[in-house]
Write a protein that binds this DNA or RNA. Structure first.
Lengths: 333, 333
DNA sequence: TTGTAGGCGTTATCAT
DNA sequence: ATGATAACGCCTACAA
């Protein structure tokens, strides 16, 4: 490996001078600069990142901790983060499948000294407390972590409001028996969406019915299963609202298998508006979330806090918009 | 920041001992080990990555260079890579949108000393030559880079064979005027797929017709546009084979807009089998590629070469399988 | 079993 | 304008 010393020797200068040329500092004569640059190019020299960040105390890398990498939701988040990071000259260090407290802990430790800050998404409410531990050792932005964590910068989706709006739309279309396929237990987003659904019902004077709420886990399969349960009910729902699009897609296929038409026999709606949603048959009504924007904002938040780390913690909310497609009967004219 | 020195002082031992405890080396008395571990935990100590890798000369990170992060293709690759990397205790450092020679070069430089090896996907044939430069400074695996680069480990898709099979299937269904929507110019995968299409035609004694080959750029929009061009032809094709699924999807929407039925009026096929494909209406016939597997294999290849870097370069090919769905008329009975 | 000290490649702080 | 040299945090001979 060619180091700064090699370049210095070859160019007949000290390592300090080479360093200066590289970071184009002042006080280097044009001739020296020229010569050093030439030698460096010839030898194919580029500084060793680890060594550099050891002394500068910056890595120009952001750590990203996600519970998973599967599906369009997470990949869009990464894309958003990378976009903002790259624009600022940062790389991203990705680490996935961290649900449990211990895994998050381990990942965090291994990131020390390799990143300048972290974007952590751990919707599991339990794991939130772990994070309290790393106060101050890292600049951290929490993604969808629940607004309780006042000790960090956070950015969340307007889950409650979005779910409330969708439910109201279904109500406006005349539905009275609206089922909800919920997300994983202890998941913040899922809990908020369920709350929004209940809020809307209550506001319309309809008592939320326990049997109409079936738990899923955000996977397509769980949406499929949930529908089977719902169809077995004595009094079937006329509309199904899934806490995310994947489950809604699973629901659609289950309904089709049972010979039910959507939206004629039963309406379906999802949440997130993943790219797939508009391609479904019928196209899926959903609550639109600009997912890559979520990542982009998170990165932006982190990057600013890296610059002035004395500013108070920020808590951003990403708004949602209703996207009405055919699966719930279309817009109300 | 709490360093090894702090732990040493607090525990009343030397830094060497703390280091030994951490890397659980031999010759540390149980009591000392216990005490040190305790202090470390209390202080929330974990070693500084950069400092550590400076001396150990390993970072436990793999660099990943992709041309883009948009769409399911790339996200699946990342997932595959991360899966294999994580299993081996490695992280991945992602860097995207590197098409040009200079960008790749810059990204590579900035990765020096931050990663142990790199997985590079730059389908642009032009950029291949740049890579020759970094011989030896990195362990490198080339993804879809064209088999010419004998100087690196490579892993590619059986593009030629896959395209040939799909074309043969269309021929077997009786199609004689088969159009091809090609990929970006100078893209290796695209070129190979086009070649496979031509091979199949020639083998069947059909002379490839220039007007039936329209160039796209792998985007949905370009597929849409290509179809418009094809429909303007005097003698329309009866089947359209797109060099990837995104373009096939764009083609489907263009055909629908023109009131043409698929597959009755015109058959459509794609390549890659992205998750979306089976959800299309009609479901898209395509050449299946296990994309995450592609990433996983690449990572595995890299990880082995990190262990014994004297072994000769390997060149893997990932096989494809035909997935016949409704968009090309279904299976031949 | 433990401690001392040198060095990994770079930048920062002094001299000169 | 340039050069010595001390950090940065850690690991690892070698010494004790």
């Amino acid at each position: 490996m060619v180091t700064i010393k090699d370049v210095a020797r070859e160019a007949g200068v000290s390592v300090a001078t080479v360093s200066r040329v590289w970071n184009d500092a002042d006080f280097v004569s044009p001739e020296t600069r020229q010569r050093v640059a030439e030698v460096a190019a010839r030898l194919g020299y580029s500084p060793h990142g680890a060594a550099r960040s050891l002394i500068t105390r910056t890595t120009f890398a952001l750590g990203v901790l996600l519970p998973d990498l599967y599906g369009e939701f997470f990949s869009e988040i990464i894309r958003g983060i990378d976009h903002a990071a790259q624009a600022a000259g940062y790389h991203i260090l990705v680490s996935s499948s961290h649900e449990s407290k211990d895994e998050i802990d381990a990942a965090l430790r291994s990131m020390r000294g390799r990143v300048d800050g972290m974007i952590i998404m751990s919707p599991d409410l339990e794991a939130q407390r772990t994070l309290q531990a790393l106060q101050g050792s890292f600049a951290v932005v929490l993604l969808n972590g629940g607004a309780e964590s006042k000790a960090f910068d956070t950015i969340t989706i307007e889950n409650h409001e979005g779910a409330r709006e969708m439910t109201r739309h279904l109500l406006a279309r005349g539905h009275r028996r609206i089922a909800m396929i919920g997300g994983p237990q202890r998941n913040y987003d899922a809990a908020e969406r369920l709350r929004g659904y209940r809020t809307a019902l209550t506001e319309s004077g309809i008592a939320p019915e326990e049997s109409l709420v079936v738990q899923g886990d955000f996977s397509e399969l769980s949406g499929h299963r949930a529908v089977k349960r719902l169809l077995a009910l004595e009094s079937r729902p006329t509309a199904i609202f899934a806490a995310n699009d994947s489950m809604a897609i699973g629901a659609l296929s289950a309904l089709r298998e049972n010979g039910l038409r959507v939206p004629e026999d039963i309406a379906v709606a999802g949440f997130d508006d993943i790219p797939l949603a508009r391609y479904m048959n019928p196209p899926l009504s959903t609550v639109h979330v600009d997912i890559s924007q979520l990542g982009e904002r998170a990165a932006a938040l982190l990057l600013t806090s890296l610059q002035k780390n004395t500013r108070p913690h920020q808590h951003l909310q990403l708004s949602t918009t209703l996207v009405i497609r055919a699966s719930c009967g279309g817009v109300i004219s």
